[in-house]
């Protein structure tokens, strides 16, 4: 108790001596610096050895984890892109195949149609030829029939009006004279 009072008295005296500012009372400096070294040293040691490594490890672990996740994600993206490329290749192949099939089908159908049209045209032509032939025959026949009819008519006329009996040869020659 006495010692304390003495120190307080000393401090007060010293403060008065140094103009009243306790900051400039150098008798307290030793104790302040001693406890500063102890407390700051303790803080430094705890931060340096225990706390800061833990915080740093936490941050770097998270950083590693994020980097890993990003790697995995980019890997997956690459795989997805490859899958999509493969899918597109398959799709393109399928399309090309379908196109080919359609093309060949169309070609064969076209060829069939063309062939059928050709055969139809050929048979038409044949039939026409036959028909022409027949028309020509019928016409010739008709013409020759007309000659005969004319001969018959002439013979009949002559027989009726002139009582002239003519032979077929005479009429024929007469008609051929008229014709020429």
């Amino acid at each position: 108790m006495a010692a304390e009072t003495k120190i307080v008295e000393d401090a007060t005296k010293a403060a008065e001596a140094s103009g009243g500012l306790p900051q400039l009372d150098f008798s307290t400096w030793s104790s302040q610096i001693f406890w500063l070294v102890i407390s700051f040293g303790l803080l430094y040691l705890v931060l340096w050895r225990i706390i800061l490594p833990r915080i740093g490890a936490g941050i770097s672990e998270r950083g590693d984890r994020i980097a890993d996740d990003l790697d995995v994600a980019s890997q997956m993206q690459k795989e997805a892109e490859e899958a999509s490329i493969a899918y597109e290749r398959v799709l393109a192949n399928a399309k090309a195949k379908a196109h080919n099939i359609a093309e060949t089908t169309r070609k064969s159908v076209d060829a069939d149609i063309a062939a059928e049209v050709e055969t139809a045209e050929a048979s038409f032509a044949k039939k026409q030829v036959v028909a022409d032939e027949r028309i020509r025959d019928i016409r010739r026949e008709a013409l020759s029939n007309i000659d005969n009819v004319a001969k018959d008519a002439i013979s009949a006329i002559l027989a009726k009006f002139g009582n002239v009996k003519t032979t077929a040869a005479e009429t024929n020659s007469a008609i051929s004279k008229l014709k020429s």
């Binding site: 500063l36 407390s39 931060l47 706390i51 915080i55």
Partner: peptide
Amino acid sequence: TNSSLWMMIAVLGVIVLFGLGSGR
């Protein structure tokens, strides 16, 4: 002294705060 006391309080405050804040 009172100065030493408040230095220790400051140090313990920092240690407690970051001790609690140093989870992983």
